[in-house]
């Protein structure tokens, strides 16, 4: 048990170090930072002095270790494009992405569970079949087409909801929130649906199949025999036992919501971290790309590690 945990933690740290190496290699091999920092009128001595001051004359390994240490302290260098520290830009952009991810996750979870239960208890009904059929098409549609479709219907044709940006935001400390203004909330709706739709269908299908499984079990039949109302049987007894796999899947999907936010943020010009990353790729803004790469891998590795450790905590068979 303990050795398993140690091994997993060790692996996670190794992965992060390798990702850091990739990020560092991007810095080292793409362009010469000296060229970027010194103008045309420079002497060989200036170059040497700056090289020494920046530590670029040191061996590769020493530079790499320094890079990792400063990254761990949240120092990712200065953006080539904006000329500001990357950490500041990220901190400024993060609230937009996190709010979007939270709302779409909530949307996916709540609607997914409701529709999953519905399609399971009315498994042969017309509405349930319609929902299942539509969900199949929804899964095969690329995210950006869903976004465009929603914009077309709700912004162009009906003119109900805004098609880009966050609307008005309120500044609370270092956090900008769109939750407190009407236009901020309205701006959230379409991006959140676009981002959450795939996860919603995933959760719906999962809940449906788990419910169908559970509803066949004896304890549900006994609950019915005891004269409990159908509602109590479904929600109190059956649904509870479908939640374990749903929670694990939701946990694992958290990472992909953040990753797929890149696409949604581009469609809706949502000023979050994903849009920042795409712009960085377009302009080959290495410090921003490297920082995003390391942050997102930290997140994925942490989520996976947490899920693995949770499994051990939940399932006694793994504790050997």
């Amino acid at each position: 048990m303990l050795s398993y945990i140690i091994r997993r933690v060790f692996q996670s740290v190794l992965v992060l170090l390798i990702v850091g190496l990739v990020a560092f290699a991007m810095f080292t091999f793409i362009g010469d930072p000296i060229d970027n920092m010194l103008g045309q009128e420079r002497t060989q001595e200036d170059v040497e002095r700056l090289r020494e001051r920046l530590g670029l004359d040191q061996p590769f390994v020493v530079q790499y270790v320094k890079f990792i240490i400063s990254a761990a302290q949240g120092n990712f260098g200065v953006s080539y494009e904006q000329g500001r520290p990357v950490a500041d830009i990220l901190a400024e952009r993060a609230p937009a992405t996190l709010e979007l991810a939270a709302v779409s996750g909530l949307f996916a979870l709540s609607l997914g569970i409701v529709l999953g239960v519905f399609t399971a208890i009315r498994r042969n009904g017309f509405a349930a079949n319609l929902i299942m059929g539509t969900s199949l098409i929804g899964v095969s549609l690329p995210t950006f087409l869903i976004g465009i479709l929603l914009i077309y219907v709700f912004s162009v044709e009906l003119d109900w909801l805004p098609s880009f940006g966050r609307g008005e935001t309120v500044q609370i400390g270092g956090w900008t929130t769109g939750f407190l203004t009407g236009s901020g909330l309205r701006a959230l709706i379409l991006p959140a649906i676009t981002l959450g739709l795939y996860q919603m269908t995933l959760i719906m299908r999962l809940v449906r199949s788990e419910m169908l499984e559970v509803l066949r079990q004896d304890y549900v039949r006994f609950a019915r025999a005891r004269g409990l109302s159908e509602r109590a049987v479904t929600f109190r007894h059956a649904l509870k036992n479908t939640m374990v796999p749903v929670i694990t899947v939701t946990g694992l999907q958290l990472g992909s919501i953040i990753a797929f936010a890149i696409i949604t943020e581009t469609v809706f010009q949502w000023p979050g971290v994903g849009l920042l990353f795409i712009n960085a790729v377009q302009f080959v803004d290495i410090p921003v790309m490297a920082a995003y790469l390391m942050l997102i891998s930290l997140m994925f590795v942490a989520i996976n590690l947490a899920v693995d450790l949770l499994y051990v905590a939940i399932d006694p068979r793994l504790r050997t």
Partner: peptide, 19 residues
């Protein structure tokens, strides 16, 4: 496999573009 493949593709594209 722990990373969504579209994200991996984006990162590879970004790195390769830089090179």
């Amino acid at each position: 496999l722990t990373f969504p493949s579209i994200l991996v593709a984006m990162l590879i594209f970004g790195v390769a573009k830089g090179f």
